[in-house]
């Protein structure tokens, strides 16, 4: 299964677009927001945690339809389904590869983009922590959505429609943890909920996603 993770990472590095595209999209979203809401740093500082979280979420969404689509088209998914490793493991590795190529770089880049949005200095640590806790859930939920729509023509739009409502709790707790942390309020609850969502999705969704892939291949 580690072989699958290594291959997917190698593909993401060589084909380009894996690492770069999501980050560039994140940057563009963050750059566009001040054009929309105006340059006052008080306003930007107030909305920065939310913008950064929504931007990370959208950047994550951008690459979801590639998780299984390429493997489906070139026949790899059929071969993986007949391979001796469990399909649940395949799904988990795919989600892990997606996280390493999008969630992790987004988490690391977020403080830099926080500067552009005059993020409260107290919020940087919480921002990185909440993204690190929450983005694995985004990848796993997205992988589940990709598994539901694999093989569908024009599945990309449908995928967004299916996945975005599922992202609501993660987004709320993630952004709330940053906002409360920056304001000096207790934010243990949202952080714990965020960690709980991530752990629960990692534990349960591989089974749902593998079931969906089996149904789609049949």
């Amino acid at each position: 299964m580690i072989a699958l993770l290594i291959r997917d990472l190698a593909l993401a590095i060589r084909a380009g677009g894996g690492f770069g595209l999501g980050l560039a999209f994140f940057l563009i979203v963050v750059v566009l927001v001040p054009f929309g809401v105006g340059p006052e740093s008080a306003i930007l500082s107030r909305i920065a945690p939310g913008i950064l979280w929504v931007g990370a979420l959208l950047a994550c969404l951008l690459s979801l339809d590639r998780i299984f689509a390429l493997d489906f088209e070139d026949g790899s998914l059929d071969l993986l389904a007949t391979a001796p490793i469990p399909l649940e493991g395949v799904v988990a590795m795919k989600a892990a590869a997606h996280w390493v190529t999008t969630g992790l770089p987004l988490t690391l880049a977020a403080p830099g983009l926080g500067l552009l949005l005059s993020l409260d200095p107290a919020a940087y640590g919480w921002l990185v922590l909440s993204l690190a806790l929450g983005t694995p859930a985004l990848s796993m939920i997205g992988t589940f959505g990709a598994a539901l729509t694999v093989g569908l023509k024009r599945g990309g739009l449908l995928l967004s429609l299916l996945v975005l409502p599922l992202y609501v709790p993660t987004l709320i707790f993630g952004a709330e943890a940053v906002v409360r942390g920056a304001a000096g309020q207790a934010n243990a609850t949202p952080l714990l909920m965020l960690a709980g969502i991530t752990l629960a999705t990692l534990a349960l969704l591989p089974f749902a996603a593998a079931a969906a892939i089996r149904i789609n291949l049949r």
Binding site: R7, A10, L11, R14, D74, G75, D78, L79, P84
Partner: peptide
């Protein structure tokens, strides 16, 4: 059974050896 359709499950950017080694490790 080893199944093969006309799609070979090859990744264009990986070398012949890498493609083969990947499937060997999977199996």
């Amino acid at each position: 059974m080893a199944y093969a359709a006309h799609a070979d499950g090859l990744k264009a950017t990986l070398s012949v050896e890498e493609n083969l080694r990947f499937w060997a490790r999977i199996f």
